[in-house]
Amino acid sequence: MKGVLLVNLGSPDSPTAKDVKPYLDEFLMDERVIDVPNWLRNIIVRGIILQTRPKKSAEAYQKIWWEEGSPLVVISERFTEKVQKQTKIPVALGMRYGSMTIKKALQELIDKGVDEVLLVPLYPQYAMSSYETVVVKTMQVQAAHFPNIKLTTLPAFYKNDEYIKVLSESIAEGLKDFDYDHILFSYHGIPERHIRKSDPTKFHCKIDGKCCQTNSVAHTTCYRHQCFDTTEKVKAYLGLPDDKISISFQSRLPNDPWLKPFTDFEFERFGKEGKKGLAVITPAFVADCLETLEEIAMEGKEQFQQAGGGDYKHIPCLNDRDDWVAVVAKWIEDWHDNESLPA
């Protein structure tokens, strides 16, 4: 019997420093998030970051926390329930970090008689610290606890026509009645070395402004290329002018080269340039979370307007939109009926 495992990032159980600390510890101690030797990662995470970060992160979570719980978890649960209603096989939800573990979700499927699982990492683009870590963790859990199940993984869907259509139409709805003079596609940031580490050729990815436009097998695992490709496809679908579109990358750690330009620097730049209407989209996420609701919707607006900018609008993620639900349900049914996966 077939079943589906949906996996997203995760969340602390509550917006308190007590619950945020173990969540951040699990997240930041992941070797695919901070990819340095374990002894150094221990010093950076447990010796430095976790001494102050939990309190600050808890305060940020408190700003966006819903009555029902973490927005990311609540939205993901709503999405899962809707998908389940549109497919004939069991669907379970797990998180890479936190108490809603992948192991629990797989056990839920096993208990329903599932012996063949479609893993759906809820990340459009491939990155070591998102898509890859979900796949590796799921394989580790499978090998250790459920060796008899067969596992198939949905590929990154950043350029899939059905995904691009839904994303584009959600953006068009967000732009309706908003007088913008610029649209910023803000993607999650990663260290530049992650791009090079993920390059199967070990020579193509130079991050020089040309490699992402030069065809290569490296693009199948190049996060930067896939971010540009998603943006270009949305731009083409909506007929958006080149001079009103740009890309940036949010989140970074100090003393380390990360993908540029940085989103917060762009907010300040656009404000100083006197942009009268800035719309911001976050296509690295399919569900709104701390990074979109607090870092972009709140802090971004403040940074932009304090620098002299005008109106500001954060366009929500796909969340549990019915058309997005229908696309994922279709992918599941195609896999169930024909063993086919989206291209």
Rank of each mutant, 00 (worst) to 15 (best):
T152M: 09
I34Y: 11
K272M: 02
D322I: 12
P15G: 02
A17W: 01
L238H: 00
K104Y: 09
D322E: 15
D337M: 14
T153F: 10
V136T: 15
K150T: 11
I315K: 06
L293T: 06
C222M: 12
H336M: 06
T292E: 00
Y223K: 09
T101A: 04
H194I: 09
L184A: 03
A307Y: 08
P121A: 03
A297R: 08
A17Q: 13
L238Q: 02
G10M: 09
P124Q: 01
T214E: 15
E162R: 12
K313W: 11
L290A: 01
K272L: 03
K150L: 10
I110G: 03
F27V: 01
H182V: 08
K235D: 05
E339I: 02
D322L: 15
P316A: 02
M128I: 06
F203K: 15
F285I: 09
A127E: 08
K235T: 04
Q107M: 11
Q250E: 12
I43Y: 14
A143L: 03
E116S: 14
S216V: 07
C317M: 10
G239A: 12
V286S: 00
G310K: 09
A143W: 09
T153V: 15
V83G: 08
S57R: 06
I48M: 13
S129Q: 12
V234K: 02
L290F: 06
I332A: 11
Y163P: 05
R193P: 01
T152W: 08
E116D: 11
P12W: 09
Q250A: 01
A218C: 15
F157N: 06
L238R: 05
D179W: 04
Y312I: 02
R269M: 00
T138A: 13
V36Y: 08
L9W: 01
I49F: 14
K165L: 10
E67N: 08
M95G: 05
F157A: 02
A58W: 04
D334A: 14
T133S: 13
G69Y: 07
K244Q: 15
A279S: 05
N8W: 14
C289T: 07
Y223M: 04
D229M: 11
V134L: 07
N215Q: 15
L5V: 03
I49Y: 13
P121T: 07
I190P: 00
S251V: 01
S216Q: 06
V136D: 13
D334Q: 14
I75H: 10
R252Q: 04
K301F: 06
E169Y: 07
D115N: 15
S170T: 10
K235W: 07
C222P: 06
P257W: 03
M128W: 12
K103F: 02
P191I: 04
E266L: 00
L154E: 02
T282M: 03
T80D: 00
V20H: 08
S70P: 05
A172Y: 00
V20N: 00
L253A: 01
E81F: 05
V33C: 13
D320P: 12
T214N: 10
I315S: 00
E333V: 12
F178N: 00
K21S: 03
E339T: 11
